[in-house]
């Protein structure tokens, strides 16, 4: 099966006051139609820049973004426009992603108008249809965004992304700005839409529990690079990269018996400055298992099992992991919790 979205060696560069920085540094992955790829990592890891580059909101520095075989990374302006209806985006902050002066009807008709779809009455019908799909009363179409709650605004933003019937939606932290009770509504809505319309999601989030809930395949990013990528079952069953393990260990869980666990599960330190990434493995400075090799030579993303790739010397260097890569007999961030 050929993939819907193929990203190959993508790089995104920003010029900042403190020098240029590679926000996305050689990222490759693919996403099949109707599936969800979860992209997790902490702020500054480049996950949002990656999403914006795929949406062509920022221009990639190098690499390819192929949607159904067409490299949309190289198209621009007029040539890109007809492809835009195939991939749409839902933003994090529903308060900022809708123009405060634009009535909902206008906001939803806009994509149709830009792409010259339908006449006036057809557009009206389509607005009613999509509003109903996302669970909004079509009578609300003549209101302004501030008259809606945060959850409703996110429904509107999803409706806008649906107007052109895309095959891919990039969701950039779509529930992070919402209260828990509203998160559930939006996550269920996204799952329903995928089931009924076969839309693929690139789901960007810092919230591991949400990604576990929704994603078929998960990529973990650290400082502009993917450090681990695996299918749902493999990643949660045997997370291989120490960073992935630390990330999972740090998530507060609704389990009071975890209280007062010792500090060893804490990942020390902060993200290094992205303008000046350390040589070797970028995680080495915070990794409790780092060796000299890790500090000197950057590990490459390599498969340790079918469909499960990790960029870590502990797994790939010949003498590092006794017992082979597949057996996670490595020092393990999660050891204390795995008994649970």
């Amino acid at each position: 099966m050929s993939a819907l979205l193929e990203v190959e060696d993508l790089r995104v560069r920003y010029a900042t006051r403190r020098g240029s920085l590679m926000a996305v540094d050689g990222v490759s992955f693919s996403l099949h139609a109707g599936r969800t790829l979860g992209l997790v990592g902490e702020s500054g890891c480049g996950k949002s820049s990656l999403g914006k580059a795929i949406m062509r909101i920022v221009d990639p520095h190098s690499g390819a973004i192929r949607l159904d075989g067409v490299d949309i990374g190289r198209l621009s302006g007029r040539h890109l426009r007809p492809h835009r209806r195939r991939f749409q985006m839902v933003f994090q902050d529903p308060a900022a992603s809708l123009d405060p002066r634009q009535r909902i009807r206008r906001a939803l008709e806009e994509p149709l108008a830009v792409h010259g779809r339908g006449d006036r009455s057809e557009r009206r019908d389509r607005v009613r249809e999509v509003m109903a799909q996302v669970g909004l009363h079509p009578e609300m179409a003549d209101r302004l965004p501030h008259e809606f709650s945060g959850g409703q605004r996110q429904r509107i933003a999803i409706a806008r992304a649906l107007m052109l019937e895309p095959s891919l939606i990039v969701c950039d932290e779509p529930v992070s700005a919402l209260d828990v009770s509203l998160q559930a509504q939006i996550l269920n809505l996204l799952a329903d839409l995928q089931a009924s319309r076969g839309i693929a999601y690139l789901f960007i989030s810092h919230d591991l529990s949400v990604v576990q809930h929704l994603a078929d395949r998960i990529a973990v990013m650290y400082l502009g690079q993917i450090v681990e990528i695996a299918d749902r079952a493999a990643l949660w069953r045997s997370p291989a990269h120490p960073y992935t393990q630390a990330l999972i260990a740090a998530v507060p869980r609704m389990a009071p018996e975890r209280r007062g666990l010792d500090r060893t599960r804490l990942l020390p330190g902060d993200l290094p400055a992205p303008q000046d990434p350390p040589p070797g493995c970028r995680f080495a400075g915070r990794c409790p298992f780092a060796t000299r090799l890790c500090r000197e030579q950057a590990p490459r993303l390599a498969e340790i099992a079918p469909g499960h790739a990790v960029a870590c010397h502990l797994h790939t260097a010949p003498d590092a992991a006794p017992g082979g890569a597949a057996a996670p007999s490595l020092p393990h961030f999660l050891q204390k919790d795995t008994v649970q």
Binding site: L80, M89, F91, Q92
Partner: peptide, 17 residues
């Protein structure tokens, strides 16, 4: 820098509009 301008870009809207 607000998202609704980015959203307009992703819809394929031109600069003038």
């Amino acid at each position: 820098r607000l998202d609704y301008v980015d959203a307009a870009v992703t819809l394929g809207m031109g600069h003038g509009r």
